[in-house]
Design a binder for these strands. Structure first.
Length: 893
RNA sequence: CCUUCCGUAGCUCAGCAGCAGAGCGCUCGACCGAUAAUCGAGAGGGCGCGGGUGCGAUCCCCGCCGGAAGGACCA
């Protein structure tokens, strides 16, 4: 057994694949009637190389599957890829502009397939076993057809509607975004105070409302001003001494002081109190457009910032939209796909201007009109598109939505029936499901599954029809959804028997519908799988993403969650706990691609690293940390190797000794093994791979390498080959080896199997079951005695080291030890009753007992015995300059 | 502002009520029949801080500080 993992692992992998190892394991379990365990693979995006984060996820899945399988489960694993979506279309469109839809889709598919191959090779190389020949792809026609059928079901249940309410819009990507596609960044924006003179009502021509906003560009769409009905507002003269201006304002009482600090306008006369409710219905003059803005009442008004009067632009915010609806304010959204103002904006010089370049001119305009009351820089977190990194704007265009309220109650109930690992995952998804708005599912993009909706030839109203959608699914099932983009409206109308002139929707479905439908398109379809899955296992960001989209669609389709348990792991971060970004990693020369590591160190080292990591939290990563796990790897490898070497002349069937015949030391190691087996089995069952790693590492380092193997070396080399003591050791080592190889197999998949092969087994270790705990060794009978021995050994060690340093002798085998022990020391009885074992354990020439008054101590001197020529121990020698044992052994051989 | 998680040797982490542990790294030594190994010794820790409950607390409880994640607010 040699190292050289980088060269040897691929050879073993090739053999596994040639023999169909994955399939053999599944079939063996099935033949044994093992219960199933279904881990449903969350599909990674097919748009990049496998980096450490992806590798962590897939290897964790493999650890789960291999350990479940060895614990006696049938574990089918169908990996998949998420193929549609903006990230891919983005790259394709960037390369060459002005492509036809069908061409974009062809190139996008080629792009996705290219990365599917790259990623698949990486995952295989990492030793992840699964049905790699038949993965599920969200771009395959059958999968796409199932997505459309899921949509049909949603329509059938009345869950889909079209509306023009504001959605989060990325002008960078020119599409609506879902909540999960939005990330928040801290930005500084101008926040301004704007005067709206009242034109009707009790204070018409006298007082002005003042609003506060961080988005001046939404002012052209202003249609209302909201005040809180119960708040107390103050009305009266405010003077800005610096500017020499006096105005009559209405400001909420709690904010008058702050308002003064920020705008310079402080009360200069008596202020009258009034309730917000009194202002309802008054019209205020828009600061630069020839229309008025109605004062409405709303509970969401707060006294935290601003003036207590809130600028309402129903086209640019969801609360604004709702308030607008309730009060019949109408809706303006004078912004196009690119984020530029349309003619509807009503101000000539703004038309065609980007909204984010319009803040300054609008502020200037306000100042000219005398409507700008104050201005400040305001630091806040603002949503950004996760792909184009541009700020998100709220914008109203017709979109399709799923009614979340119809699903929410069941979804929340289902969340509490699922096991969340770690437990706080429950709160995370519960919170988002509890508060999420309706799901905007239409995307104005090309690379995706078409939204199977038509528009009436006459009225242009959308036709939401489940049967129609199902027929679209049937039509695309064989040819794929490219049909939607390649054929024209007339063709489709004819195919579906719709009146001529019917047009089809050009939107595609949100990709979260794609992956969120996998429980239907994969779990329900695949004969080996079934829904609900036993486990979903992804990074923690999927609480907002896949876990949620899957839950919602599953509740819509089957009124239940698609999973019984959900496990999440943290992100891979660099050693300073900063996010690892590819561009930065490249700059600093810190590789993050999994390929770099398995090509340099080997997949088993990477797997061992994964097992050693605390997946619940963020996972720090760096090459230094990675190298640290190479050391334990060598220990595992060497331990397996020396065990194998010591077993070279052992035939379990012939040579094994009975349980009752184990000497102390061997009984002890089997007691330890018993604990290790129990602990590892439990740890695997709880997915605590790190505990497995720690337990096995300690077992190999402390119990096996430093003690058991070291001490029994003498027996192995020098006892007569067939002596019962040597055979007992081999029997124990044989058990230890088998258990160790099996317990390591899920983690060190290549190395454990290599050892297994060397041990003479024809079939890979991965077909085996975990070792069973041996009840006969559950009691720690020998362990207590060995603990005493260890104590004595440590005691002697100090004295021996001093003697070696003083040049009294060179090695511990030359030491004659005297233990000075108190009369009641428990070690006394042990030394007297088992002198042979004691001598062997201590690895010294001789020992003697003496009385001690206080603490136990040991003294040493050079032994008078000569070294046995054969075993090099210093013992009483017989005539031939051999010790008694060696003379006998030599006589036999 | 709220919730959760984390804070033990230089590094990565065990332990979780009863004399502070492992691995790596470092220093020094032994072995030379696990040798691109193996064995040993040493240095290195008021177990984040402050209280509390216990005979006894790193471990339980409360508060605080520091770090991370999520939520709320804002959009």
């Amino acid at each position: 057994m040699r190292g050289d993992l980088v060269a040897r692992e691929p050879e073993r992998l090739a053999r596994w694949e040639k023999d169909g190892l994955y399939r053999r394991i599944v079939e063996k379990r099935r033949a044994a009637g093992s219960p199933k365990f279904v881990l449903h693979d969350g599909p990674p995006f097919a748009n990049g190389d496998v980096h450490m984060g992806t590798a962590l996820n897939k290897v964790l899945k493999d650890l789960v599957l291999k350990s479940k399988s060895m614990a006696g489960h049938e574990c089918p694993y169908v990996p998949g890829w998420d193929c549609h979506g903006l990230p891919i279309e983005f790259k394709v469109v960037k390369e060459s502009r002005g492509l036809e839809s069908a061409e974009i889709r062809r190139r996008s598919e080629a792009f996705a397939r290219q990365y599917i191959d790259i990623q698949r090779n990486s995952f295989r190389r990492l030793g992840v076993l699964g049905d790699w020949e038949n993965p599920y792809l969200t771009l395959s026609p059958e999968y796409e057809a199932d997505i459309i059928r899921v949509f049909a079901t949603l329509v059938e249940k009345g869950l889909v509607y079209q509306s023009q309410k504001p959605v989060q819009w990325s002008y960078g990507a020119q599409t609506a975004l879902a909540e999960a596609e939005v990330e928040y960044q801290d930005v500084k924006d101008p926040a301004i105070f704007v005067k709206f003179p009242l034109a009707t009502g009790a204070y018409a021509g006298e007082s002005s409302m003042v609003i506060w906003t961080t988005t001046p560009w939404t002012l052209p769409a202003n249609l209302g001003i909201a005040v809180h009905p119960q708040f107390t507002y103050l009305r009266g003269e405010f003077t800005n001494a610096e500017r020499g201006v006096t105005e009559n304002f209405i400001v909420v009482r709690e904010l008058v002081e702050v308002f003064g600090q920020k705008t310079g306008f402080v009360p200069s006369g008596e202020l009258a109190e009034l309730k917000g409710a009194e202002l309802e219905g008054a019209e205020a003059q828009h600061p630069f457009l020839p229309r008025t803005s109605r004062v409405i009442l709303a509970d969401f008004v707060t006294t935290e910032t601003g003036t207590g009067a809130v600028h309402i632009a129903p086209g640019h915010g969801s609360e604004d939209y709702l308030a607008g609806q309730q009060n019949g304010l109408g809706l303006l959204s004078p912004v196009d796909d690119e984020g530029k103002f349309t003619a509807e904006v009503g101000v000539d010089f703004l038309v065609g201007k980007h909204v984010h370049e319009s803040n300054v001119p609008i502020i200037k305009l306000l100042a000219e009109k005398g409507a700008l009351i104050g201005k400040e820089n305001y630091l806040h977190s603002y949503p950004h598109c996760w792909r184009s990194k541009t700020p998100v704007i709220f914008r109203s265009v017709p979109q399709f939505f799923i009614r979340i309220d119809a699903l929410r109650e069941t979804a929340l109930k289902e969340i509490d029936r699922v096991q969340w690992l770690p437990h706080w995952g429950r709160n995370r998804i519960f919170g988002t499901v509890e508060s999420r708005p309706d799901w905007c599912i239409s995307r104005q993009r090309t690379w995706g599954v078409p939204l199977p909706v038509f528009y009436d030839a006459e009225t242009a109203e959308p036709i939401l029809d489940a049967d129609l959608a199902r027929r679209v699914a049937d039509l695309t099932e064989s040819g794929g959804t490219n049909l939607w983009f390649e054929k024209d409206d007339a063709w489709w109308a004819e195919q579906l028997g719709l009146p001529a002139g019917t047009t089809r929707c050009t939107d595609t479905l949100d990709v979260w519908i794609d992956s969120g439908s996998s429980h239907v398109a994969v779990m329900d379809r695949h004969p080996e799988l079934s829904c609900p899955a036993d486990l979903y296992l992804e990074a923690t960001d999927q609480h907002r993403g896949w876990f949620q989209s899957s839950l919602m669609l599953s509740v819509a389709v089957r009124d239940a969650a698609p999973y019984k348990a959900v496990m999440t792991h943290g992100f891979v971060v660099d050693q300073d706990k900063k996010k690892i970004s590819k561009s930065e990693a490249a700059k600093s020369g810190k590789p993050v691609d999994a390929a770099y590591f398995y090509n340099k160190y080997g997949a088993d080292i990477l797997r061992l690293w994964v097992s050693s990591v605390d997946w619940q939290n963020e996972v720090p990563f760096g090459e230094d940390l990675f190298k640290q796990t190479a050391e334990p790897y060598r220990r595992f490898r060497n331990t397996l190797r020396i065990l194998l070497a010591n077993l070279h002349d052992f035939d379990a069937a012939k040579d094994a000794v009975a349980d009752a015949d184990f000497p102390l030391l061997d009984r002890w190691i089997l007691e330890r093994l018993h604990q290790v087996v129990v602990e590892c089995r439990e740890a695997y069952a709880a997915y605590e791979f790190r505990k497995v790693f720690n337990t096995l590492n300690q077992f190999c380092a402390v119990d096996l390498s430093a003690l058991y193997i070291d001490i029994t070396k003498d027996r192995m080399y020098c006892d007569a080959a067939d002596s019962s003591r040597r055979r007992a050791t081999q029997t124990a080592m044989h058990r230890v080896f088998e258990a160790l190889a099996k317990l390591l197999a899920p983690i060190l998949s290549f190395t454990a199997d290599e050892a297994w092969e060397y041990a003479g087994y024809a079939d890979p270790v991965h077909l085996e079951l975990f070792p069973e705990a041996a009840p006969a060794f559950a009691a720690a009978e020998a362990s207590e005695k060995v603990a005493q021995f260890s104590r004595l050994r440590d005691l002697a060690q100090v004295a021996i080291d001093a003697a070696v340093k003083a040049d009294e002798f060179k090695k511990r085998e030359r030491a004659a030890v005297v233990f000075h022990l108190p009369p009641d020391d428990p070690a006394r009885a042990l030394l007297e009753s088992a002198p042979e074992e004691a001598l062997e354990f201590l690895m010294v020439s001789s020992f003697a007992l003496a009385d001690a008054e206080g603490e136990a101590t040991a003294t040493v001197a050079a032994t008078a015995h000569e070294e046995c020529l054969r075993c090099r121990r210093s013992l009483p020698l017989v005539a031939s300059r051999l010790c008694g044992r060696c003379e006998e052994a030599a006589a036999i051989s």
